[in-house]
Write a protein that binds this DNA or RNA. Structure first.
Lengths: 156, 156, 156, 156
DNA sequence: TTTT
DNA sequence: TTTT
């Protein structure tokens, strides 16, 4: 019975979040996240390998993603592997694997992009702290309450 | 500010849990967990190195630990690093680091020991399923609700 | 570019390892690992959900898996998500996701089954230590050298 | 024997790295890393709690840290808990816990700050890639070769 | 397909 | 102090 199914990712979004509002107040966001690994092959050449991950976020987290994330955003993610199975038109068994995100946090750069249309003075770079979004997990610490279960206020 | 503070341990208890019942229905359990790493040193000799971790569990988890864990139990633990600071009698700043357990699960062997007083027939070995304890996390999956926040029924 | 792509699993094998010896001394093992999560649905009923993971191990680790693991074995795994992409006969883009195992360790029960043919006396239960396999990682500690890079001796 | 002792941190440095060059070409760097967790207490007030971690890096990683990290740098870290024990002047048993870093990667902002004295054109922001430092782990992926074991070239 |  |  006891099992562990944990995924930890740190990477960048390949596109803006795709958000769908479903009936019954449900919201789902799909993100495409790239994790890139670089190493030297045996000829000493630098090689980069990128893996693309399909992320799925629900409800409160989906809303936060919609509001603060966009193409290029760097995020840290915790979640679990979850696969859908079905039979396709050819009668073949199919399986699609995605990451169900349990919590995430933006890292590095301010969430903006739009938010800072005139970054002319160099120091404006770090100036506006602009509260980076974190969904519950924060320091990996708290009880990791799913935002689904939390009240509906944005955490900032 | 976004942060992550996560600890993952898999090891054995060096002693039975120490459980204290505090006022106000609070319960705390302290566990001593060994994680042992083995490697070959540069002379090719096998070396074992054991690290001892002080774990702290609260409330529901503390009760589960008291009920199912004992010296020698092997557990998987997720938690965070948490340190206490104080000034000792010499006026020195002191700091003690422990692991605040957010979830754990027993692995391998049936939780028993006691639970299986007459294991004479070999096959009795696997017979009594005896439900291994898991605290919420299970497959690393669920919303990781802290047991503090859950209702008071044991999860099995 | 910095990225993190990490998977942590704890579960049971649904079948014996499938091992293939390739040309050039390469060995690959495929494992099917179940991680089961249990929770109470909103009607208070106990629900179990099992996720099946396709694991891929290479070379030294594949050999260790072949030698010590079998259907039912409980293992702790660290690895990364890795997907293969191809075009199927219908000209459709296809993608299959698997876990490339970087290290694993057996947990709980002695690796045997076979290994302990006459466990008649109860105490024989714990007697034959029978060295549980671990691939490098051990306490998550060492440099996590891939076994591919290590010499060819089994670590026990 | 099999154990897991793993720490994952994402936070900011409270000070510049302290680097010491020892005899025999050994180098050690000590970092102080803050992970901050924010939550609402039961009165609905926002509370921030910061945990400070003592990190220890060796050799190649120490050099990279010295070169690229400084007060305020945000890093992702993987390592293990490691404690030193000794007897103090009062004859008391003492124990100090630190994190032995196995790999780390800078996140977010380009490593410098200083490094980009004339970022006048807005787009220069993302132009100079300025190779963020990563120590082996990259996408959590590779064999996680300890830099101690790697050749002495900086990985960028 | 595992495990409890 | 555990475990192998």
């Amino acid at each position: 019975m006891a099992g562990v199914n944990k995924v930890i990712l740190l990477g960048n979004l390949g596109a803006d979040p795709e958000v769908k509002y479903l009936e019954g107040d449900k919201v789902v966001a799909n993100l495409s996240l790239a994790t890139t690994e670089a190493y030297n092959d045996r000829n000493g050449n630098r090689v980069e390998q990128t893996e693309w991950h399909d992320l799925e976020l629900w409800d409160q987290q989906a809303k936060i993603a919609e509001k603060y994330l966009k193409k290029g955003s760097q995020i840290y993610v915790e979640g679990k592997i979850k696969s859908d199975k079905w039979t396709d038109e050819q009668g073949q068994n199919r399986k699609k694997t995605k990451i169900r995100v349990l919590s995430f946090t933006m890292v590095g750069g301010r969430p903006d992009g739009m938010g800072n249309p005139n970054p002319s003075p160099p120091q404006s770079d770090t100036s506006s702290p602009s509260s980076k979004p974190t969904t519950s997990m924060s320091s990996g610490g708290g009880p990791d309450i799913s935002l689904d279960d939390a009240d509906d206020d944005l955490p900032f």
